Deep mutational scan, measured.
Amino acid sequence: MATGGRRGAAAAPLLVAVAALLLGAAGHLYPGEVCPGMDIRNNLTRLHELENCSVIEGHLQILLMFKTRPEDFRDLSFPKLIMITDYLLLFRVYGLESLKDLFPNLTVIRGSRLFFNYALVIFEMVHLKELGLYNLMNITRGSVRIEKNNELCYLATIDWSRILDSVEDNYIVLNKDDNEECGDICPGTAKGKTNCPATVINGQFVERCWTHSHCQKVCPTICKSHGCTAEGLCCHSECLGNCSQPDDPTKCVACRNFYLDGRCVETCPPPYYHFQDWRCVNFSFCQDLHHKCKNSRRQGCHQYVIHNNKCIPECPSGYTMNSSNLLCTPCLGPCPKVCHLLEGEKTIDSVTSAQELRGCTVINGSLIINIRGGNNLAAELEANLGLIEEISGYLKIRRSYALVSLSFFRKLRLIRGETLEIGNYSFYALDNQNLRQLWDWSKHNLTITQGKLFFHYNPKLCLSEIHKMEEVSGTKGRQERNDIALKTNGDQASCENELLKFSYIRTSFDKI
């Protein structure tokens, strides 16, 4: 039985969820670079991206490699990797027998973001014989899940209580170790020597080791999670996991709180800001991140802002960003909400898709409305799209047979046209069989910064309504002859009103 693990408890099935942008060198404390989270699957090609990484700022997932063999891993080693800020997950990587050479110096898994409450997941690794993470000293947050690894031993010899604050939620089941077939031998045991430290858990006094050649490092209890030197002297209180010299914040392997210019500090002093819960960055760093993602459509890219001495992905609820200094300031009234469309555009074809934009005031991208039916549609669209004030790209209304009016965009005031449909149009209306009105132009103002209007096959939309939009939106004169079809717009509506004058002759039985 794995020490510190839980057996036999019912657990939810383990679901495996399925960018080499360097964020800056980590400095003297770390020998390499800070790398983003990685999802490495199918083959070993991307694994080489770990070569210079000291910190993975995010998670590391290595999974679904069915053609790899043990010899493929023999020359692979990433000794610079010290810390993973989120979680480490391995799933069905064939041929991998140990992690001792792959990650010989991995010391800390912070667990800032977890995989279903777990910071370390080893699942269905069919050839893994031992973990071998002999320098792993601290899992700051989260638990361990090690399950269905039929060859995995050296679990009962690990004292997880020396690595985690609590072992109650560890789930370590259905491994070879369960069948008591392992016969784990710690260093020196074969020669009758006791080389590794022994600890007591559940009444068992057991030597602690990761492999037959690597003991588990056990520091004096007084050192807590700070770690200790090879001689057993406690590291500085700002260290986490390990250090090369005692009581020196510049000799830590990793930091308990924050890293700044080669030393570990309790908090980031001005003019620095907390970033990702582990390091200090200056304003320029946060500003660069903001600008890199301002026009990016890459998933996970955030326009970072500053709030409460932190550089964070977005302002919290009730705050909006001051564009001059990136500071989050309290909103006066309802907060603006910028919604970034991942692929640059979004099609609204149902109430469900409209709900995804609920509360958005600025759309960074283009909207395509293609709704053919739905219950209580006008009210639903207004509830979900009615706060949109600005669209950076274009607005396209296409084959939306259920629409009679666009009044559900009740606050839309600006279409920038930074991206144009077919390279020309910022407003595009095609084949809307029941569209009769755009907006009530006596109450609604709309500016279209650039781009043209396109109207074709809107049989109940009168040309007068379209011409009014040209005047109000500032697009009059931009359109070419064929942009607004004269014969297919309003051709099934009563669009022309003329005053009919009647004269009559009164007659009676005795007068003409």
Rank of each mutant, 00 (worst) to 15 (best):
47 L>V: 05
180 E>D: 03
85 T>D: 01
83 M>G: 02
199 T>L: 11
284 S>R: 13
211 T>V: 12
141 R>A: 03
53 C>V: 02
69 R>I: 07
295 N>S: 10
156 A>I: 10
31 P>K: 09
328 C>G: 01
300 G>W: 04
329 T>N: 06
189 T>P: 10
280 C>V: 00
44 L>Q: 06
320 T>Y: 11
263 R>W: 00
144 V>M: 08
79 P>H: 06
53 C>E: 00
34 V>F: 15
133 L>S: 04
45 T>P: 15
236 H>N: 06
58 G>L: 00
209 C>H: 03
157 T>Q: 10
185 I>D: 07
225 S>G: 06
85 T>H: 04
190 A>R: 12
158 I>C: 04
296 S>Y: 15
60 L>R: 00
272 Y>A: 01
249 P>Y: 01
253 V>H: 11
70 P>L: 12
226 H>M: 08
91 F>V: 11
57 E>N: 10
215 C>R: 15
109 I>T: 00
150 N>T: 07
122 I>E: 01
46 R>S: 14
49 E>G: 04
155 L>P: 05
196 C>S: 12
317 S>W: 14
44 L>W: 09
131 L>N: 04
103 F>V: 03
178 D>R: 08
91 F>G: 10
198 A>G: 03
38 M>A: 05
303 Q>K: 07
256 R>N: 10
158 I>Y: 07
268 C>Q: 01
107 T>V: 05
100 K>A: 08
155 L>I: 11
136 L>N: 00
143 S>N: 09
93 V>T: 08
291 H>P: 02
204 Q>V: 06
105 N>S: 11
258 F>N: 02
77 S>T: 13
278 W>T: 13
277 D>V: 03
137 M>D: 03
200 V>S: 12
59 H>D: 02
270 P>A: 03
69 R>S: 05
180 E>M: 12
185 I>Y: 06
202 N>G: 11
272 Y>L: 13
203 G>D: 09
237 S>D: 14
327 L>I: 08
185 I>T: 07
134 Y>K: 00
198 A>P: 09
55 V>Y: 04
92 R>L: 14
177 D>Y: 03
225 S>N: 15
69 R>K: 02
223 C>P: 02
176 K>R: 08
297 R>T: 08
225 S>Q: 10
302 H>D: 04
62 I>W: 02
185 I>C: 08
125 M>S: 05
133 L>K: 01
72 D>V: 08
121 V>G: 01
190 A>S: 09
80 K>H: 06
86 D>C: 01
205 F>L: 10
33 E>N: 05
227 G>R: 04
54 S>D: 02
297 R>A: 11
264 C>G: 00
98 S>R: 03
331 C>M: 02
265 V>W: 00
106 L>N: 02
97 E>I: 10
333 G>V: 03
264 C>A: 00
218 V>W: 11
240 L>D: 09
333 G>C: 03
320 T>S: 05
191 K>C: 02
285 F>L: 04
266 E>V: 10
290 H>W: 14
77 S>M: 11
267 T>L: 04
191 K>D: 02
73 F>R: 06
324 S>L: 07
265 V>I: 07
197 P>W: 05
49 E>K: 02
109 I>K: 00
64 L>Q: 11
90 L>R: 00
109 I>D: 00
217 K>C: 07
295 N>V: 03
311 C>V: 03
262 G>A: 04
312 I>M: 11
130 E>P: 01
331 C>K: 07
224 K>D: 11
70 P>T: 07
263 R>D: 00
249 P>M: 01
321 M>H: 15
308 N>G: 04
79 P>Q: 07
67 K>T: 06
72 D>L: 02
297 R>Y: 02
259 Y>C: 14
246 P>C: 06
95 G>M: 03
215 C>F: 08
285 F>P: 01
242 N>I: 07
62 I>L: 06
283 F>Q: 03
55 V>L: 02
290 H>T: 09
168 E>R: 12
67 K>Y: 04
256 R>C: 02
218 V>N: 10
221 T>R: 05
263 R>C: 00
189 T>Q: 08
